[in-house]
Design a protein around this nucleic acid. Structure first.
Lengths: 233, 233
DNA sequence: TTCTTTAAGATTGTCGACAATTTATATTGA
DNA sequence: TCAATATAAATTGTCGACAATCTTAAAGAA
């Protein structure tokens, strides 16, 4: 029984393993977005039976990475501009809530630990400037900690098991890296301060604004990519 | 291929049918909350194989009605006071968002249709005073329409396929019926007016307040029930 | 040619059986 | 009596095969 790094999924069964593997491949784009999933083919590839693969597909469906139609089959989700907006509207509402609850609940030592984490990110960020992986991981860390600090299990599950893989998929496949990183850092700092002061209203507002900015950033990338595709034709 | 009334689930396969049936039984309490689910037993009861039943269980898990542990099995969710708070915090954030979007997007004829619906509810409510089913259905109708009017497919799915069955489960099993009905009606009216005026900020606020009131109502029932149980001992 | 209809192929849904794991029971030793 | 261990029973996880459904390709009619 091992453990999955990103969402702390306990890997006990064969279908757990297939689920985690497929999730990574879909998020990172090894399995192409929008592509049809053939059960016999993938079962063979992962060396499991169709029953086991289908179990994994069910779970991928619950975190919005594949879509199923009865008697037709599975398809990897397609990253559209419309969906991006939809997902970020939901994310903003939920993480705004999480941040508000965190401001209400977070203990002083938890706040200090989070501050420390942020400083670490600042250090490594300067060193690793341009390497998107560390920025990704650092940003994820920060948001994840706040989500957990909400102490609302349902909310935590909804975000970390539900939305986050999809959000990660957008970020990874848009190749998120650029000048927004340092701005994001300042925003994180402001959010922590609000939490430290138990100013829940401000914390919620700042988080929502932070997420909106992130959305605008991805959306710009999206449009840029769309333009490039048009020129290429 | 038939259709399920409440969440518009298309029933195509055998597992669809089992899913819808079990969902109803769990929500209404025929299958007791907190009880262990035996796969062989229920498969026999519904006249399907274990594979088909497990498919249904997977889907019940994604709408939070059962909880699974690897190599241990399924258990029907337990309705605790803590969970009620968690779920309603999330619901408030999401339906608040839905209501805001509805205020932005809703066309005049849609608003009129919703007003008309509300009047119908008022009529039948007076006639059927005390029959909780109609109040339930009416309230659900209202909220569902606003959710749909958000035009955010992800949000719609999250609420109607995800949270609502669990919310319904709380309401049904707490036996929701009482003096709050008429107040709820007034609140609905105020929300529609805000939507009609495209006052999205107010619409969101009123919806959140409306949901908080509903939560307080259920919570009161909960405490009452807990007290009764203590006395009975 | 274009549109239906029909048949073949492939894919998903469902089943019963076996393997792996957990839970309950019985046994042994202190 | 109680705790720890070993055994037996039951439950879940996984597999391969068959049935039902959809998709594709071919054949025929307008």
């Amino acid at each position: 029984m091992t453990q999955d790094a990103f969402s702390e999924t306990l890997i006990t069964t064969a279908s757990d393993q297939v689920f985690v593997d497929m999730r990574r491949e879909i998020v990172e784009g090894s399995i192409e977005q929008g592509s049809k999933i053939s059960e016999p083919e993938l079962a063979k590839r992962y060396g499991v039976s169709r029953a086991t693969l289908r179990e994994a597909l069910n779970r991928l469906e619950s975190c919005y990475l594949v879509e199923r139609k009865a008697n037709v089959g599975c398809r990897v989700v397609a990253l559209t501009a419309e969906r991006l907006i939809e997902v970020y509207q939901v994310r903003s509402a939920l993480e705004g809530l999480a941040c508000r609850l965190a401001a209400d609940n977070m203990a002083p030592d938890e706040v200090q630990s989070l501050k420390q984490l942020l400083n670490q990110h600042l250090q490594t960020q300067r060193v690793k400037e341009g390497e998107s992986y560390y920025q990704e991981a650092g940003d994820l860390d920060f948001h994840y900690r706040i989500i957990k600090a909400s102490k609302n299990e349902h909310l935590i599950h909804l975000l970390s098991n539900g939305l986050y893989q999809l959000i990660r998929m957008y970020r990874v496949q848009m190749g998120m890296v650029g000048p927004r990183v340092s701005k994001a850092f300042d925003e994180h700092l402001a959010i922590i301060n609000a939490i430290e002061n138990h100013d829940s209203e401000l914390a919620e507002l700042l988080m929502k604004r932070h997420i909106s900015a992130s959305q605008a950033n991805i959306q710009a990338k999206f449009n840029l990519l769309a333009t490039q595709k048009k020129v290429a034709q």
